[in-house]
Design a protein around this nucleic acid. Structure first.
Lengths: 153, 153
DNA sequence: CTTTTGGTTCAAAATATACAGAACTAAAAT
DNA sequence: ATTTTAGTTCTGTATATTTTGAACCAAAAG
């Protein structure tokens, strides 16, 4: 696939973004490619060739992306190839997961608070405050999504 | 420092949480220790001995934690030691930073949208929708914190 | 002025991760 | 029946990360 320099650069930037989320570079670049590719469904070999990665790396990365959620594939009768595509519609879920990662720290903080002596009042009240806000977020974030959905009808 | 098995386990769990955020294991464990330690200020050697890490690893990790924000140290006149402690009060900032990481993806998505042909209508409208919600979040999240602050007065 | 304390810095070892290349497989095409 | 396609899986290697240990340093203590 022919890509402009600009798109290649975007792929790298998106790749780095996903690397920072703990993804391997190749998988991050695949995400990048899927975002910028004009056709939304790409074959194994298109991905491999465009990104210059080996078959094995392509295979491993695609399967990882499928397992962890952001990618799926579709097939067509009489065509053995898989057509890989972003589950773009999935952004609600992936966002929710990222927020949950943040909010889940709450349970560790609660364990901490239970395990701590209550000598360090200042510290403990800071902890309580933090836990409290995470609790609030846990409740309010889903409402925020609903409010947004409402607002755009 | 003598720690119960339970606290040791908590340190590891907190360590893993921070590892997932891209921190090195030793630094993550230091965070864990600082959360569970009864005394909120710990010396270099207390940290080193309790966690069984080398001086160099301790030094590097502590400096990293200081640079990136979550830790600070205080000193006392006539005492050469530094007393390292969590900037617990800092949770607002660190939360804000984590939310910004999520929201900043918006700028990449905007670049993507500009670079894309408008053939893939479905895909593009999904992108637009996502960008839109990130925009909404960017505006609403700070308000959520304010609302929470109000509610607890 | 020598030793101790509270670290820092550097080189090297240990470990973990990511990737390539080759061998393999099952289904389809020739 | 052989070849091609569309991958998968299994080493091995390259690379990056993390940690240690040892040397070093400046300030304070003896």
């Amino acid at each position: 696939m022919a890509l402009t320099e600009h798109k290649k650069a975007l792929i790298e930037k998106i790749g780095i973004f996903y690397e920072k989320l703990g993804m391997q570079p190749a998988a991050g670049r695949i995400m990048g490619l899927m975002f910028v590719a004009d056709r939304p469904e790409l074959t194994f070999d298109e991905i491999r060739e465009t990104l210059n990665i080996s078959k094995s790396a392509t295979s491993t990365a695609l399967n990882l992306l499928i397992e962890t959620g952001p990618v799926e594939y579709i097939t067509f009768a009489g065509d053995r190839k898989r057509y890989f595509k972003l589950k773009t519609s999935n952004w609600r879920d992936s966002l929710a997961q990222r927020f949950n990662n943040i909010i889940n720290f709450k349970s560790l903080l609660i364990e901490v608070l239970e395990a701590r002596s209550d000598k360090a009042t200042e510290f403990n009240s800071c902890l309580t405050e933090f836990i409290d806000f995470l609790e609030y977020l846990q409740h309010e974030l889903p409402l925020l999504l609903k409010k947004w959905e409402e607002s755009r009808k």
